[in-house]
Amino acid sequence: MTSPAALDPGIAARLKRDQQGLVAAVVQQHDTGEVLMLGWMDDEALRRTLTEGRVTFWSRSREEYWRKGDTSGHVQLVKSVALDCDGDALLVRVDQVGAACHTGDRTCFDAGDLGALVSRG
């Protein structure tokens, strides 16, 4: 019996994980730059995302892996994955099919502007 594949050790060595072993993953529509959502990945979720062509997250509330769209049909097709300069955040560029947010909105950031002072300079 073969053991499951692991995340590439070179990639794993570059990650700076939080206390739960997770890295933030910002999901962006690849062609428009629209920020769709934020999710969390551990090494296995990242390995699956890099090798399966669909985005997999670690659910902190359910404590299980979930692949975006398996129940809703609103899939995220991977276009690219990049690690930031500090190694503590991922940028996952996708082709979003349907809504990205569990509320049915296109993006999770439609909940309302917080009214920040806009700089004019």
Rank of each mutant, 00 (worst) to 15 (best):
T2V: 09
A6V: 11
L7F: 07
L7C: 11
P9Y: 12
R14L: 10
L15N: 07
K16V: 02
Q20G: 11
L22N: 05
V23N: 06
V23A: 07
A24Y: 05
A24V: 13
V27N: 09
Q28V: 09
Q29P: 04
Q29M: 00
H30T: 02
H30L: 00
T32G: 01
T32D: 04
E34C: 03
V35S: 07
L36A: 03
M37N: 12
L38W: 04
G39R: 14
W40Q: 05
M41Q: 15
M41V: 08
D42Y: 13
E44C: 00
A45M: 06
R48N: 07
R48W: 07
L50R: 12
T56I: 08
T56K: 09
F57I: 12
S59F: 07
R60T: 15
R60N: 15
R62C: 15
R62Y: 12
R62N: 14
E64S: 13
Y65A: 15
W66V: 12
R67K: 11
K68T: 04
G69S: 10
D70Q: 13
D70L: 08
T71G: 05
S72N: 06
S72L: 10
G73L: 15
H74P: 06
V75E: 03
V78Y: 09
K79A: 09
S80H: 14
V81W: 13
A82N: 11
A82P: 10
L83Q: 04
D84I: 02
G87C: 12
G87W: 13
G87H: 14
A89K: 02
A89W: 00
A89M: 07
L90T: 10
V92L: 02
R93E: 12
A99C: 08
A100L: 02
C101S: 06
H102P: 14
G104Q: 07
D105C: 07
R106I: 05
D110N: 11
D110Y: 01
D110W: 00
D110L: 03
A111Q: 05
L114M: 04
G115N: 00
G115W: 07
L117S: 11
L117E: 11
V118K: 08
R120E: 00
G121N: 05
G121S: 01
